[in-house]
Design a protein around this nucleic acid. Structure first.
Lengths: 198, 198
DNA sequence: ATCTAAATATTAGAATACTAAATAATAATT
DNA sequence: AATTATTATTTAGTATTCTAATATTTAGAT
């Protein structure tokens, strides 16, 4: 019976030994493909229903989330070239979903803003995948929600590990930051120091 | 201390109560975005290094996996229109990565095949993301690998639940199908019957 | 102050992806 | 035989994405 400390939380685990690591990886990849495919189909659905394409939608969401952003920030944030962002913004601007204003501090920069219309569209837009997912997710038990979150964070961390040197272990303690209480009953030595990225 | 049965396996869990379900969902979505973004960046990288675009690569992989496929099967399998598949195949055919043959049984149908060149390219192609991921994944402990797999399968299942009526709970027993042994120590009543999709 | 270099956004041009509609060929049905 | 359905292609139009070139502004150096 293994026991592992996660922040102030203890998890005691007894689990099967999977037959082959390669098979496990294959299962992970299959699941990931399924997830990615589902989101892919979803964004196609959104494109059909809203008349906006996925990049357009994503760009608007990014503007909403980041507030006053420049084109360059949008480009690097979305991993696109500035030219691409410009053309997408052009299309959004002709639909009056976005407007641009040159910065007063640095006249090289241009800020992008959402219009009222766009803000409404984003809030009132159908987000069936997220909604449906959220509904199902909230029906799960706490331990399962926590498990999923930590697993996904771990996977995400491993995937953009290009930028990270050597922190192969998820900071499960992050789960604890909501301020929930937990009592320890057993402790497993944590092999790697937790480390925040960014 | 909650205890849950997963197939023949028992997991005993004591975990924090996350503050707010909405926050949890937000964390899940953020992680998913990170994962999807990582794979997205990866396919861009592949496109740069191999000279092929992501759809082209995916199409070739699909042909390899499915064997003798028609254009329509490729289209539905990849959720694209036949026209799109046709044009992608056109480009692959000019590069001599794919060839087509009209079916003898049903002359409306056209089968797509990989050339030697393509098969080689697929096997020898750099798959650094998967490799890197696989390396890190295999370094994880068994319980963590299992946790990640079941979490991902659960998420994937919830995401394409459009097609599924009402089986909101992951068939964790699937994890057991490798034939590994496990001893039970406690049992938590499983609320939902396991159910295989497809 | 002037010149140079860097940063920033846009434009232009090209390749790809995607869809819908029309077309053509074959198979199945009546 | 005639009609209908299936399958793949072509065509036309829009969107995405990149690189390279351009213009403008800012910052730094002389």
């Amino acid at each position: 019976m293994a026991t592992v400390q996660c922040g102030r939380t203890i998890i005691r685990v007894k689990f099967i030994k999977t037959g082959d690591v390669l098979d496990s990886i294959e299962e992970v990849l299959i699941s990931l493909r399924r997830v990615i495919r589902a989101t892919d189909l979803h964004s196609k659905f959104l494109a059909r229903t809203t008349g906006l394409t996925a990049p357009q939608m994503l760009l608007m969401q990014t503007i909403r989330d980041k507030g006053e952003v420049t084109i360059g920030e949008l480009a690097s944030g979305m991993s696109l070239s500035q030219a691409t962002v410009t053309t997408i913004l052009d299309r959004l601007e002709t639909r009056q979903l976005v407007y641009r204003e040159r910065s007063k501090e640095d006249k090289r920069k241009v800020h992008a803003y959402l219009t009222e219309k766009a803000a409404e569209m984003l809030t009132s837009a159908p987000i069936p995948l997220q909604d449906q997912f959220a509904r199902q997710f909230s029906d799960l038990q706490d331990w399962e929600q926590t498990m999923i979150i930590s697993s996904l964070q771990r996977v995400a961390q491993m995937m953009d590990a290009q930028h990270i040197d050597a922190s192969p272990v998820l900071d499960i303690g992050m789960l604890d930051r909501q301020g929930a209480a937990a009592e320890a009953s057993e402790v497993y030595e944590h092999q790697h120091a937790a480390k925040k990225s960014k």
